[in-house]
Amino acid sequence: MKIKFMLNDRSQTWHTEPGESLLDLLRRHHVVSVKKGCDGSTCGVCTVLMNQKPVLACTVLAVRCAGEHIHTVEGLADEVEKISEAFGIEGADQCGFCNPGIALALYALKAEHPEADAAEIKQYLEGHLCRCSGYQSQVKAALRYLGEAS
């Protein structure tokens, strides 16, 4: 079956099967910022924005994206660059596999709650596993990004 949806503000009509996840659909079309870490709703590296809200691309069936707006970091480069600068300053980037997902979460957090403090950031990012950083530098980077952004 074919579905039509908006990907990074451009209309796309792609073939999918009912069982396919949005994650597999995107990666099949070489949207490689979206990673597969568990394929089971438990790690957060596949996060994308659906109608500006973070969702797990592995958990959302592709067919259900018909008519919806999906954003990945590829489509939000300006803001993501700011986030990456904050990560760079705090030394929060290591292997980077979790980073695109976290960037999208921070982008959404900024829209939802730009004054978030460290505790709120931690709670908001909780679904994003990172085995490298120990997390603290990520929170510092997030504070820096939100502070500079507001």
């Binding site: 809200k53 958990t59 959302v60 709670q123």
Partner: peptide, 12 residues
């Protein structure tokens, strides 16, 4: 509710 996985999961 806030203790069920992460925000992105709870959005779905």
């Amino acid at each position: 509710l806030s203790q069920i996985l992460g925000v992105a999961f709870r959005n779905t």
